[in-house]
Each structure stands twice: as C-alpha cells, then as structure tokens.
Design a protein around this nucleic acid. Structure first.
Lengths: 232, 232
DNA sequence: CGCTGTGTTGAATGCCGTCAACGTCGGTGG
DNA sequence: CCACCGACGTTGACGGCATTCAACACAGCG
C-alpha cells in the first residue's frame, strides 16, 4: 500500500478508526509534494478537491481586484484546508501557497460524503475547523478596529509562534521563512513599518530577526506589548 | 397549533418539506418577541440554543476586554443566528441585540440533530451560512487592510442596503434605525469621521441622512466612491 | 559580477483620531 | 404644555501615527 495509516491516525477527524477504516480513507486520497512557493490551488479556480497538510507550512492568500494581497492564515501540519466545498462554494476564495516544501493529501470532493460515513468524527471536526476560523477572523477584525499597528504585529507574531514555534537556545523561532512583507500582509500594514518595529524591538531585546527569520527572545515582554492599550 | 407553517416554509433550509415535517420542526421551537435594544443572547454565555429571526433586525456585537465594541454583522429576516453549537462551541462568541422589535424562533441545541434528520437541507444550509459568513468576514479584513475609511464606509452602507434596503421616493433607505456610532463600529472608525463623511456626501447629493436614518439617493455614485482606489 | 529580492533608515506628507464645544431632536415628568 | 435632560449629530482645531517617497545596504544566485 502506498500511504501509511500512521499519517492520519493521530488526527482529530480520524480518531478511533480501526486499520481497515483508515486504509479506506487513504484509498481515496492522493499524496503529492509541493515545492516551496508553488500553488496548491488558486483563488477563483473551480474547487474540485479538498486537502490535508501532512508536512510543511502553507500560506493562504487573498488578492484583491486591485492587486493587494492579504495573508488570511497559515495552515499547520495536520490541518484541513481548501474545504470550500464544505461551505457550499464552487470556487476557492483564496490561493494556497507552500511556504516551504510541503506534503499534501488530496481528496476529490466526491469523497466528502464517504469520509463522513466512514469517520463520523470527520464531519464534525471539519465544521469545527470552519467555526474556529470564523472566530479567529472575527477576532482579527476586532484587532484591526481597536488596536495600534504595534500591538497587531506583536499579536500576529505571538499567534504564529504559538502554532509553529520551534524552541532554540536563543528563544522561540518561527520555523518557516517569513519576510517583513509577509508580516505586513498579515497585519494590514507596510513592510516599512514592520521593519522599523522589529528593529526597535531588537534594540530592546524582545526579538532577534534576520533574513526571513524571526526569533522571539522575550515572549513575556512581547505579550505585554501586545495588549498594552494605548487607546482609551 | 401555535406556530404557522408558513413562517418557515419558504426558507432555504426547509425547502421541500411537507406540512407534517414543518409541523414537527416547529413543534420543537419556541417563538418569542424581543423588544428593541434587548439582548437575545450575551457574549460569553453558555450556548444552549440556536435561533432563527422571523421578523426584525438583529445586531451581532463583539466586545473586547477593554470595552471596545465592534458590530460583526446584521442578521436579516429568515436567517439563522447563534449557531455556535454547530461550530463546536459551548459559549456565544458575541452578543445579539434587537435593532428593532423582533420575533425569534428558538430551538434547544438538542433539536439540531433532529432537524438535520427531518430536513436534510437544513444542515447543508446552516453550514453554507457559516461558510458565507467566514467569507464575508475575510473580505472585511481585506477591506480594512487595503481601503481608506471613506471606501469602507461606502461599502458598508451599500452592503446594508443591499440586504435591508427599502425603496422610498428619495432613494433606498436603511429600514432600521442606525446611528453614526453603529456605522463607525462596523467599519473600525469613529463616529466623528462617519459624521463628516455623511455630511460631505449629503452635500454632493449621494445620500440623505438624519437622526438614526440613512437614505442612499445615488447608489451608483456611491459605488464609484466605494472602489475608487486612492492607494497604489 | 551584476541582478533581484530583502531589509534598513531618514524625511515629509497626510489621513484620521482625539479633544472640545455646540446644536438638535425626542421623550419624560412636573 | 413646557422645561428639562439625555442621546444623537455636527463642526473646528490640533496632532500623532503610519504611510509614502527615497536612497542605500546586503545577501544569494546564476
């Protein structure tokens, strides 16, 4: 058999399935590799499949008619993505780009009902995922409405490291390449402002940053930064 | 029987049900009236029920720990709301406040599986609703990232009238009371800025506004305003 | 060795938030 | 009926934060 059960056995959507069920789930899937900076799917394209990220990190990007880009979220290992179909959509609302080399499982939309039948937890888990993302996105709207750029960037960094942080001797590091521009597109600001802030924070010993790399050296101080309310 | 089938017969989630099924759906529901400015449910409260708005308009408000309020959306007649439960949540992530006198159907969470069994379209419709809201919220993030206040307000007004617009001799009117403050909380700005903008637009003949009232007199011109890109 | 992508930093502009004062409408109670 | 009061709305002045414009530095790569 080409795909090993252990790839998905530990995921919440497939908890409690026996070996045969897991094999049946995998039988409908195709595994593929996406090199860094390649698109898994493109915004506006017909949504014929849904995906599960086995390894790597994926950037979900929305592009406005005017060409502005916004990073809606990062997908971590083990997460579903591109589940437009479960939301009753026929096209993908955003593009998915591999932030590093990635391994992805792909199912055709037709497999959705089958997976739900095989794994009762699968549907619930998927819908919970969507619910969580709605929550997070609404929280982001609140942030953008009420917080200064400084705090939004601090929050964004903390959110990333909490999900994709790698401990190093110097602190917690974001374990995929991320540019100032990326951070700007996550927080609705410009790379200039991000650069200035990171430089300032580096001077204060909160972070250490380099080319496409950010290390949080003092998470606690950054958390203070994140919710020190400047506004009334 | 206390509730009439015609209340829900036309809604997408209950399409194609016969009279008996409709009665069964209604049998589990309770109808209640919420006077203007009363809460249907409160942010953070245990989510024991979900709701359908039969008549009126409801404001969904999120309040930050610091006391900032943001209007996440308005609920229109015929829409489900407070469906935290379908997203795997146990508390409501926002408050729902009646913008005018409202009539609301309430089901206990336990009725969710029953409704899905009775009306296969119900589940799909509900999940499509959540998907749509995720979409809209992400679009809002894009707006806030890339557009000026002026365009965000124009877009917000157009979105409202497209859903809750009432034609009048003078133009299209928002058919529930809405204050400058409300518009500010939808767009992440201040009531001062909204007031200035509306005054300016009134001078140019785009809108006519009064106390808790906004009428769009020139929708086309407002649409131009909405996506005239100032930024690069 | 030049080119492209990334990052830094300074200076100037301007949008929009903040502060402040006043005007107006509508409801309420004497 | 009128006076009062609170909620809502308007407008001006000021200033700060972040964008914009610009120039340079540096790394990686063909």
């Amino acid at each position: 058999m080409s795909l090993d059960r252990s790839l998905i056995a530990g995921l919440p959507g497939f908890a409690g399935l026996d070996a045969g069920d897991l094999d049946a789930v995998l039988a409908r899937a195709r595994s593929s590799r996406f090199p860094k900076d390649t698109e898994v799917f493109a915004q506006g394209a017909q949504a014929g499949s849904f995906f599960l990220l086995l390894a790597g990190h994926i950037r979900v990007v929305r592009t406005s008619p005017e060409g502005h880009q916004v990073i809606a979220r990062y997908i971590n290992e083990g997460e579903l993505f591109g589940i437009a179909m479960a939301m009753g959509r026929t096209t993908y609302p955003a593009s998915a780009v591999a932030a590093v080399d990635c391994v992805v499982l792909t199912w055709p939309n037709a497999a959705w009902p089958e997976l739900q039948a095989l794994a009762p937890a699968f549907g619930a888990s998927a819908y919970r995922t969507i619910g969580t993302r709605l929550q997070e996105t609404q929280a982001q709207v609140m942030e953008m409405s009420t917080q200064q750029v400084e705090q939004r960037i601090a929050n964004a960094l903390l959110r990333i490291v909490s999900q994709s942080g790698k401990k190093t001797p110097e602190g917690i590091e974001i374990d995929f390449p991320i540019t100032r521009q990326d951070i700007a597109e996550m927080t609705g600001t410009t790379l200039h402002t991000v650069s200035r802030l990171l430089s300032a924070w580096e001077g204060e010993g909160l972070v250490k940053s380099g080319r496409q790399k950010v290390v949080i050296t003092d998470p606690h101080a950054l958390m203070l930064m994140a919710d020190s309310r400047r506004r009334k």
